[in-house]
Amino acid sequence: MDLSATHDTFVLERTYPKPPDRVFAAFADPAKKRRWYAEGEHAAERFELDFRVGGIERQLFRLGENTPFPGTAITTEGRHEDIVPDRRIVISSTMSLGERRISTTLATFELVPEDGGTRLVLTHQAVFYEGADGPEMRKGGWEKLLDQLGAWLEE
């Protein structure tokens, strides 16, 4: 089995016309964070947030009927590693597809006051496990897909 791990880093920036305390609140308040983080194209089936250093964030959603893996759960479990009010939030988290871990990421959110608003800088560092690129996962993915294709075609 190929145990290669692949790494990826990206940086995103946004400027919001609201002061840092308002942006910070959108990370600290579970109801607010759920709205921008866990809703959207897929509404999360479950979202829990314990906003303190060491506090856990959990998200679960399921792939829809019109996907190759309907009903499969995608879960993300994160831990708040560092919180500096109105300035910085660091979250490490692991994403899994079904039982298989896909990736672990370190997301650093820096809030910089700027002209009465806030510049948010997200540095997203990820390691994708052998499942992400290895032939075993590729083969496994195909086998599973083809099994499901077969089932669909027999219906």
Binding site: T6, R14, G40, S103, A126, F128, R138
Partner: peptide, 20 residues
């Protein structure tokens, strides 16, 4: 699909920050 996750992650976060 999983190796595409790297691209997915980035576009997912783009959309999240827009929703924020």
């Amino acid at each position: 699909l999983v190796s595409r996750w790297a691209d997915e992650c980035r576009s997912l976060w783009e959309r999240r920050l827009d929703r924020l």
